[in-house]
Design a protein around this nucleic acid. Structure first.
Lengths: 84, 84
DNA sequence: GCAATATATTGATATTCTTCGATATAGTGC
DNA sequence: GCACTATATCGAAGAATATCAATATATTGC
């Protein structure tokens, strides 16, 4: 599939946009935090985080039991190039 | 639904991105042109154009039998504000 | 090793989206 | 009016997606 469409698909969801906005505001955020704020079941949040990872929009780092996510700002900027 | 998600949903399709890119390059384009270039059935193209219209990304003007589409650049710029 | 916890994966279901055939609407030219 | 053309809408089928319960995996602390 087209790379641009793939990126926009990853952004085309309220939950994922909320996750990205939290990452932009707070820098590094534990996965457990999204579970608390999104009011969705844990597998659902995990699914959305996976979509964002596979789109290259976020990075994950495991520390102990927790996984910390950060925004890939470079990838977001690359997205500007795909804007029509 | 969230306004940002709605906009990104409109962009999250290869065909619609192709349509928007043609509009950016060529300015004003007749609907019949997209039918020729997209290799999709006419109702499908019409559907995609409707999605873009409802997202405010394009404008349509009917002249005679033909409908001419133009890109709403202001709306695209507004989209930058929704980028995380 | 075992219990407890955080996250990921699997599998199923419900919803949404893309696509197209058939049909409707609107405009042109006779 | 009628035939013809361009576009839009309707309705249905198939594909893709979001969601969650159940389960698996990985890590900590005992």
């Amino acid at each position: 599939m087209d790379e641009g469409a793939r990126l926009f698909k990853a952004l085309a969801d309220e939950t994922r946009l909320a996750i990205l906005n939290q990452l932009r505001e707070q820098g590094e955020v534990c996965a457990c935090h999204f579970l608390a704020c999104c009011e969705l079941a844990q597998p659902t949040v995990s699914h959305h985080l996976k979509v964002l990872r596979e789109a290259g929009l976020v990075s994950a780092e495991k520390r102990g039991l927790w996984v910390y996510y950060t925004l890939n700002r470079g990838r977001l900027e690359a997205l500007l190039a795909w804007l029509p």
